[in-house]
Design a protein around this nucleic acid. Structure first.
Length: 499
RNA sequence: GGUUCCGUGGCCGAGUGGCUAGGCAGAGCUCUGCAAAAGCUUCUACAGCAGUUCGAAUCUGCUCGGAACCUCCA
């Protein structure tokens, strides 16, 4: 089996993935800012890196997955909106900052569970690591890469760039930044306009504030990720992930801070997911085109014709490679919903398939065997090729007709060997459930409902033996109105499914 | 303006030199009390122009169109 290759944003190429300590992987992913409700765009990195987390474990690694909660708000470096976002909204909503943060943290966790994302190993909060951030800032000052002005501390980018490759990750050139940085307020506090804040002095009206060697204030824009990744994953760790829009300045600044403190580039592999777009434009608050997760799940949005389940959205996201933009539309989600349903039903059918007991070796179709084996083994190759879930799903769909044909008797169950059948079952369950993280939705309620439906199936069968089609049709039609499809199978059995 | 990226069939999307991606939608057929599902078949594209090559969606150049980042942003 080929080894895992990942696209490293830091080098802009695919590289063989090897962890610093064999068998152990440290991964840091930029988490949510819990100052508001998550939207579809936010779902992408968390689903993407959940699959990466799952796959790394599937390969036998012990993974420490750290994903932060930004509950202190991010700030503009300085500027027109120089107040803490969270405290600002707290004032508007007349809520305690921590109450607001708690509310949106809970909502975020709720959405993550809906998506069947595994919990990170550690989910540190920014407010819980003020001490670590202050310590880190002190160290940067000690290294003489930061300076204090009026109770605020700034990182000296120009000096850093003289000794380190500033801009390597994001492809920025310092001189260009000098020319294109816009004029901001409080610019006079900084030696150079591209310097960024490590600590900001808090104005009197600022609610969130902490004591520091430089007076009362709050941490700057990027320091929390540097502090927390260092604390839980060490001076250098394996993977750092996040959305492409964080490349600059967030991750670039993170590299600068951590490098000064730890004398190492913090992460060896930088992985970035692309954006979700809507009509070709990035989905984002500033574009006023977001669809919140609660709106997606309820269907309560002008662009949506119906609710979409979390698994549909997960599947929709995984049908595209994580480094490509993904264009949202109601139609595309409907297509994803149907596709997932077809794939999942085939998976359920596969689990029920059995070969006849009389082991007729002569009946085995070698071409079919070879084809299935290749399609299955390629799944590993695709995942190893920078987590190409789109190709994984495509191959699984190629197997769907084979499964259904066997079930319907179009292909004899004897034409595949027991080994191949078991291989199919193993690959499907491993990939769909363990790696891609898909699952039956509402499994608990379904168990009870299934009992009720089994009863109706019995009654309908009896009616049909009496040729009482009025009753049999009534059952089927009424159920259909409730969104439950009852189907008559070839062998006289009945099955049902939910729309 | 600077940097980077993209433009694939009705829609969504893989694919980086030769071989059919896949999903959804559409059409036909089979199965069937009817319906649904399923199976089979079908439609089969690569923004435009020029070039490299035996051969290009894939490499090069130009043109047109779009996007991201440079400001909070997943």
């Amino acid at each position: 089996m080929q080894s895992l290759q990942v696209h490293n944003s830091y080098t802009r190429q695919k590289e063989l993935f090897t962890s610093i300590v064999p068998g152990y992987v440290g991964m840091y992913v930029c988490g949510p800012t819990v100052s508001g409700e998550s939207h579809l765009g936010h779902a992408r990195p968390f689903i993407t890196f959940d699959v990466i987390y799952r796959y790394l474990m599937h390969l036998g690694n012990k993974v420490r997955y750290v994903r932060n909660i930004t509950d202190a708000g991010h700030f503009e470096e300085e500027g027109r909106e120089a107040e803490d976002k969270i405290s600002k909204k707290a004032t508007i909503e007349k809520l305690e900052p921590m109450e607001l943060v708690q509310k949106y943290t809970n909502l975020f966790h709720w959405a993550m569970r809906k998506f069947n994302n595994l919990e990170p190993s550690i989910e540190p909060t920014a407010t819980g690591h003020i001490v670590e951030q202050i310590e880190m800032i002190k160290k940067i000052i000690h290294e003489r890469y930061a300076y204090e002005t009026n109770g605020s501390v700034y990182f000296d980018v120009k000096k850093y760039a003289e000794h380190y490759p500033y801009g390597k990750l994001s492809g920025r050139i310092l001189d260009d930044l000098l020319e294109t940085s816009r004029e901001l307020e409080n610019q006079h506090e900084k030696r150079n306009r591209q310097d960024f804040a490590l600590w900001k002095a808090a104005p009197p009206e600022h609610i969130m504030r902490w004591e520091s060697p430089w007076g009362e204030g709050f941490p700057g824009w990027h320091i929390e990720c540097s502090a927390m990744s260092t604390k839980y994953l060490g001076d250098q760790f394996d993977i750092h992930g996040g959305g492409m829009d964080l490349l600059f300045p967030h991750h670039e600044s993170e590299i600068a801070q951590s490098t000064v403190c730890n004398h190492k580039v913090p992460a060896r592999y930088w992985l970035h997911n692309n954006m979700i777009t809507i009509n070709g434009k990035k989905m984002g608050k500033s574009y006023n085109n977001v669809i919140k997760l609660t709106e997606l799940f309820s269907g309560d949005h002008p662009l949506l014709s119906q609710p979409f389940s979390p698994m549909t959205i997960r599947f929709f996201i995984l049908q595209t490679h994580y480094r490509s933009t993904l264009d949202f539309s109601n139609e595309a989600l409907q297509a994803a919903e149907k596709g997932l349903k077809r794939l999942w039903e085939a998976y359920k059918n596969l689990q029920k398939l059995e070969r006849p007991v009389d082991d007729n070796a002569a009946a085995i179709d070698n071409n079919l065997e070879t084809k299935i084996a290749k399609l299955l083994h390629d799944l590993d190759e695709f995942m190893n090729d920078d987590f190409n879930t789109a190709k994984v799903l495509a191959n699984m769909f190629e197997i769907v007709p084979i499964i259904n044909a066997i079930r319907d008797g179009h292909i004899s169950a004897s034409s595949i060997s027991e080994e191949t059948l078991q291989l199919m079952k193993k690959y499907f369950s491993t990939y769909l459930e363990n790696i891609l993280g898909l699952r039956d939705e509402n499994a608990a309620e379904l168990t009870k409902l299934n009992g009720v439906l089994d009863l109706l199936v019995e009654i309908r069968k009896e009616a049909r033996t009496r040729k009482d089609y009025a009753t049999s049709d009534k059952i089927r039609n009424q159920l259909q109105q409730l969104g439950i499809l009852m189907k008559d199978e070839k062998d006289g059995k009945m099955s049902y499914g939910f729309e």
